[in-house]
C-alpha cells in the first residue's frame, strides 16, 4: 500500500483510510496471502497424449521460480510453516511446493499495529516473528527518525544486509522495537480462547450452534480461499477438441461446496451446517491430530472477507458457553 494509507478491518469490512504519517508498512494483511505463490490457485500437473491409440504421459519442464517475499507478517510465516508440514512432511511430497519453498527468500515485517480482526497473539503466531525468516524488519517512526530494526535470520539475509547501508542497533533501538511489537500484541482486535480447544470441538459435533451459523453462511468459500493455511484442491481434466491431448489441472477447492464430499449417491456433507462444522473443526481441532499444530494462525482474513461477517472467534465462544450472539434462542444444553 502507498505511504499515507492504511486499512480498517472488521467482520465483513475492509476499508482504506488515510494515515497521517510516513509509515511504509502501516497496514495489515489483505485478502491475498503468499499461498498463491507457493501453492498456486491453478497449476497443471501433467498432460497425456494419445499416440497411435496409446497413452503417453507428458511431464512439463520443471519451472520453479525463485521468489523473494517482502513484507511477510508473522502470522503468514507461521502459515507457510504449516503448509510446509502438509506438503513436505509426510511419506508423499508435493515436489512443486517443495522446490518453490526451498528457494524462497523471506523478509518479515513485524507488526507494530494490529488490525480489527487480528488474533495472532491468541494463536501464538505473532506479532513478533521468532524464526524461519531471512530478515525480519521492525518499522519505527518516532518524531526524530524513521528507521528499521533488522533481525538477521540466515546467511542469505546477512549477505543482503551487507549491501544495504546500516549500523549496529543500539540497546535503546532494540527496546523500542520490542515495545512497538508488544503494543501490537495488546491491540488485537479479536481473541480466541484455545484452552482444550481440540476436545471442545470434538465434543460439540451435535451442538445447535452449527445450524444457527449455517443460516447465515452463504457457502461462498471466501473464507477458505483467503485463509493462508487452507490447502484443499481439486483435480480437473481438460481435453482438446480432437481428443488427442488431456491435461490434469489442480485448482484450489473448498470444503464449503457440496461437491467436495460427493460420493456416488450424494454428498457426505449435504447440509451447510455440516460444512461449516467441518471447516472450523478442521482448522482448530483435527488439524492438531493431523499435523501437530492448529490450522489457524489468527490472521483474521476469514472474518474480514466473509460477506456476512461470520467470525470464528465468536463461533468458538458460542460453542464454549452456549451463548447466542444474535437474537436467536439456542438451548445451552450440550447435545453430545
Amino acid at each position: 500500500m502507498p505511504i499515507g494509507w492504511t486499512d480498517e478491518q472488521d467482520g465483513g469490512t475492509y476499508r482504506l483510510k488515510e494515515r497521517d504519517d510516513e509509515a511504509l508498512f502501516g497496514y495489515q494483511v489483505g485478502p491475498h496471502s503468499w499461498k498463491k505463490y507457493l501453492h498456486p490457485p491453478r497449476r497443471r500437473l501433467w498432460q497425456a497424449e494419445m499416440r497411435d491409440n496409446h497413452m503417453v504421459i507428458v511431464d512439463d519442464e520443471p519451472d520453479y521460480p525463485r521468489y523473494a517475499f517482502f513484507g511477510v507478517r508473522s502470522c503468514e510465516l507461521n502459515a507457510i510453516t504449516i503448509q510446509d508440514t502438509v506438503f513436505t512432511s509426510g511419506p508423499y511430497v508435493d515436489i512443486g511446493y517443495r522446490e518453490r519453498r526451498k528457494q524462497a527468500f523471506i523478509v518479515v515485517v513485524n507488526c507494530v499495529e494490529a488490525g480489527g480482526t487480528c488474533f495472532c497473539a491468541s494463536m501464538n503466531t505473532g506479532p513478533q516473528a521468532e524464526q524461519g525468516f531471512d530478515l525480519a524488519l521492525t518499522e519505527l517512526l518516532d518524531p526524530n527518525q524513521h528507521y528499521f530494526v533488522v533481525d538477521i535470520g540466515s546467511k542469505a539475509g546477512a549477505a543482503i544486509i551487507k549491501q544495504v547501508p546500516h549500523q549496529q542497533a543500539q540497546e535503546q533501538e532494540h527496546m523500542a522495537a520490542q515495545q512497538a511489537v508488544a503494543q501490537a500484541a495488546r491491540q488485537m482486535g479479536r481473541t480466541l480462547d484455545t484452552r482444550d480447544i481440540k476436545m471442545l470441538l470434538y465434543n460439540k459435533y451435535e451442538h445447535p450452534r452449527w445450524d444457527e451459523v449455517a443460516r447465515r453462511c452463504l457457502s461462498c468459500t471466501n473464507c477458505t480461499l483467503v485463509c493462508p493455511t487452507c490447502f484443499c484442491v481439486s483435480i480437473e481434466e481438460q481435453t482438446d477438441l480432437n481428443g488427442q491431448t488431456a491435461e490434469r489441472w489442480q485448482r484450489w477447492d473448498s470444503c464449503f461446496t457440496a461437491d467436495f464430499s460427493y460420493i456416488h449417491g450424494g454428498s457426505v456433507r449435504s447440509s451447510a451446517s455440516s460444512r461449516y462444522r467441518q471447516w472450523l473443526t478442521h482448522k482448530l481441532a483435527s488439524w492438531i491430530d493431523q499435523f501437530g499444530t492448529s490450522g489457524c494462525v489468527g490472521c483474521g482474513r476469514c472474518i474480514t472477507w466473509c460477506p456476512v461477517g461470520i467470525d470464528l472467534t465468536e463461533e468458538v465462544r458460542a460453542l464454549r458457553d452456549g451463548e447466542p450472539r444474535i437474537g436467536v434462542a439456542i438451548p445451552t444444553l450440550d447435545a453430545v
Binding site: G90, F231, V233, S234, I235, F260, S261, I263, V268
Partner: peptide, 17 residues
C-alpha cells in the same frame, strides 16, 4: 470418501482427523 489425490494433499477424503 471422495478422493482426488490419495496422498493427503487434496483434503477431500477427510473424515474427522
Amino acid at each position: 470418501r471422495n478422493m482426488k489425490c490419495a496422498v493427503g494433499f487434496c483434503g477431500h477424503c477427510q473424515w474427522g482427523p
